[in-house]
Lab assay of single mutants.
Amino acid sequence: RELEKFANEFKVRRIKLGYTQTNVGEALAAVHGSEFSQTTICRFENLQLSFKNACKLKAILSKWLEEAE
């Protein structure tokens, strides 16, 4: 439930900031050390990743959002 809420909020905030899914994937290299594909970001936003992978990505995306805003 919390993950679903974060995924929805993330998408809204990403769009408000003017980032595409591809931009986010590339920008994550600075935060995490490796890029993520547009497909991975899309699957996260649509809750199509495994729970374990989504939880890992949530932590990375939270950190990125803090820096982007």
Rank of each mutant, 00 (worst) to 15 (best):
R1I: 06
R1W: 12
E2S: 07
E2M: 03
E2I: 04
E2L: 04
E2T: 09
L3F: 07
L3M: 07
L3A: 12
L3E: 04
L3W: 04
E4A: 14
E4H: 05
E4Y: 05
E4G: 02
E4M: 07
E4P: 01
K5W: 05
K5N: 12
K5P: 00
K5I: 12
K5E: 13
F6V: 00
F6Q: 01
F6S: 00
A7V: 13
A7G: 01
A7S: 08
A7C: 10
A7L: 00
N8A: 15
N8E: 11
N8Y: 12
N8H: 14
N8C: 07
N8K: 15
N8G: 09
E9W: 13
E9Q: 11
E9V: 05
E9P: 01
E9A: 11
E9D: 14
E9M: 12
F10T: 01
F10D: 04
F10R: 03
F10K: 04
F10V: 05
K11S: 05
K11W: 01
K11V: 04
K11P: 01
K11A: 06
V12W: 06
V12R: 12
V12E: 15
V12S: 14
V12Q: 15
R13K: 09
R13G: 04
R13F: 01
R13E: 00
R14P: 03
R14Y: 03
R14L: 04
R14H: 10
I15K: 13
I15G: 08
I15Y: 03
K16F: 01
K16I: 05
K16T: 02
K16C: 12
K16R: 13
K16H: 03
K16G: 06
L17C: 05
L17G: 01
L17P: 02
L17R: 02
L17I: 04
G18S: 02
G18N: 00
Y19A: 08
Y19K: 04
Y19Q: 11
Y19L: 12
Y19W: 09
Y19H: 08
Y19F: 07
T20Q: 01
T20R: 00
T20Y: 00
T20I: 00
T20F: 02
T20M: 01
Q21L: 11
Q21Y: 09
Q21R: 09
Q21K: 04
T22C: 12
N23K: 12
N23Q: 15
N23S: 14
N23L: 07
V24F: 01
V24A: 04
V24L: 08
G25Q: 11
G25I: 11
G25D: 05
G25R: 02
G25L: 04
E26Q: 06
E26R: 06
A27F: 07
L28A: 02
L28P: 02
L28E: 04
L28R: 06
A29F: 06
A29P: 01
A29I: 07
A29C: 08
A30K: 13
A30I: 09
A30L: 10
A30S: 11
A30H: 08
A30G: 09
A30W: 04
V31E: 13
V31T: 13
V31W: 08
V31P: 01
V31N: 08
V31M: 11
V31G: 08
V31K: 15
H32Y: 15
G33L: 00
G33D: 04
G33H: 06
G33N: 06
G33C: 03
S34D: 13
S34G: 13
E35W: 10
F36R: 01
F36A: 07
F36M: 09
F36K: 03
F36L: 08
F36S: 00
F36W: 10
F36E: 00
F36Q: 06
F36Y: 13
S37R: 03
S37L: 04
S37T: 13
S37Q: 03
T39Q: 15
T39V: 12
T39K: 14
T39L: 10
T39C: 00
T40P: 00
T40A: 10
T40Q: 10
T40Y: 00
I41M: 07
I41R: 05
I41L: 06
C42Y: 10
C42G: 13
C42N: 14
C42P: 03
C42A: 15
C42D: 15
C42F: 08
R43F: 09
R43E: 15
R43K: 14
R43D: 14
R43T: 02
F44H: 06
F44S: 00
F44P: 00
F44M: 01
F44T: 00
E45D: 00
E45R: 00
E45I: 02
N46V: 05
N46L: 07
N46K: 10
N46M: 07
N46G: 09
N46T: 05
L47P: 02
L47G: 15
L47Q: 12
L47Y: 07
L47C: 15
Q48L: 08
Q48K: 07
Q48M: 07
Q48P: 07
Q48C: 05
L49H: 04
L49C: 10
L49K: 00
L49T: 04
L49S: 06
L49G: 05
L49Q: 03
S50M: 03
S50F: 04
S50N: 14
S50V: 01
S50E: 14
S50P: 15
S50L: 06
S50G: 14
F51C: 06
F51M: 11
F51S: 11
F51Y: 14
K52T: 14
K52I: 07
K52R: 13
N53Q: 13
N53P: 12
N53L: 13
N53C: 13
N53V: 15
A54V: 03
C55K: 11
C55V: 15
C55L: 15
K56W: 06
K56H: 09
K56V: 11
K56M: 10
K56T: 09
K56C: 07
K56S: 10
L57T: 10
L57I: 14
K58T: 07
K58P: 04
K58Y: 06
K58L: 02
A59V: 14
A59Q: 13
A59T: 14
A59C: 12
I60Y: 08
I60E: 06
I60Q: 06
I60W: 05
I60H: 07
I60D: 09
L61C: 08
L61Y: 03
L61F: 06
L61N: 02
L61K: 06
L61R: 00
L61Q: 03
S62I: 13
S62Y: 05
S62T: 14
S62C: 09
S62L: 11
K63I: 09
K63H: 14
K63T: 14
K63D: 14
W64G: 06
W64P: 05
W64T: 04
W64Q: 05
W64H: 06
L65W: 04
L65I: 14
E66I: 09
E66C: 12
E66D: 13
E67Q: 12
A68N: 10
A68M: 13
A68T: 13
A68W: 00
A68I: 15
E69Y: 04
E69A: 07
E69P: 07
E69Q: 05
E69R: 04
